[in-house]
């Protein structure tokens, strides 16, 4: 069967693209969290892991691919949002949520806004840990080496309570987006039926809660147990 371009441009096709890219980003978050958890393996191991990651030549295609997925998700979602707005030019005088079996929530009605906030957060986050100030691991003679002291950077950053607050609030925004996004992506791709959809929804939400709990715990634990240790707890 040949690829039909309308497959990705129609209303359903657009949702398929948003769902596929969304799930890819969701999967990336698990890898990211696993990396975060390496922090607690100790300074040397964590720095060695991060050095191995960023010195690997494969990192560039992976980063570019991830950025493209992110941009595709964003562009298609914004375009879709505008098209949906045009579908109801005259608003209701009074519209109230129907409740009953509906899964309309704060999360589902604010996807475009939490999405924009996530874009801003990702920019700030990359500045904090990727393109921002760098710390380097010193060698035996006390001279800085090529190896970045990411462990020390995280301790420095998360010793600031405002920084911890910023990350916790940001994770609440991400979590809100994923509360609806996780199961909605599965439905858009065609998963579920009358019997299994409710289980699909609760499973997606539980997995999202676990994921977000992991991300929230990292800055809080660093603030609680490593604060002010200057990178050498």
């Amino acid at each position: 069967m040949k690829l039909r371009i309308e497959a990705f441009l129609s209303s359903t096709g657009t949702k398929v693209v948003i769902a596929l890219t969304g799930l890819a980003l969701y999967a990336f978050l698990f890898v990211h969290l696993a990396g975060n958890m390496m922090f607690f393996a100790g300074q040397d191991k964590f720095n060695a892991y991060s050095h191995y990651l960023i010195s690997n030549p494969l990192i560039y295609p992976v980063e570019i691919g991830l950025a493209l997925i992110f941009v595709l998700h964003l562009v298609r979602a914004v375009g879709n949002f505008h098209k949906n707005q045009r579908a109801r030019p005259v608003p209701y005088h009074a519209q109230v949520p129907v409740r009953h079996t509906s899964r309309k929530s704060v999360a589902s009605t604010t996807m475009i806004y939490t999405g924009v906030l996530i874009l801003v957060f990702v920019g700030i986050h990359l500045f904090h840990f990727k393109f921002g100030p760098e710390l380097h691991v010193n060698d035996a003679a006390g001279q800085p080496t090529d190896v970045k002291d990411l462990h020390g950077l995280m301790v420095t950053q998360f010793s600031n309570p405002l920084m911890v607050l910023f990350y916790v609030v940001s994770m609440l925004v991400v979590g809100t987006h994923l509360w609806h996004g996780s199961w909605s992506a599965l439905q858009s791709l065609g998963a579920g039926n009358v019997a299994s959809t409710p289980r699909l929804v609760s499973t997606a939400r539980i997995v999202t809660l676990v994921l977000m709990a992991g991300f929230v715990l990292v800055p809080i634990l660093i603030f609680a147990f490593y604060r002010g240790a200057g990178g050498t707890p």
Partner: peptide, 22 residues
């Protein structure tokens, strides 16, 4: 010119015939 589906399920909740979004 209809919009796309956000999978909220308001439709299912108002449907007089209770057609599920599955």
């Amino acid at each position: 010119g209809f919009g796309s589906c956000s999978n909220e399920g308001e439709c299912e909740a108002v449907c007089p015939k209770q057609i599920p979004i599955a």
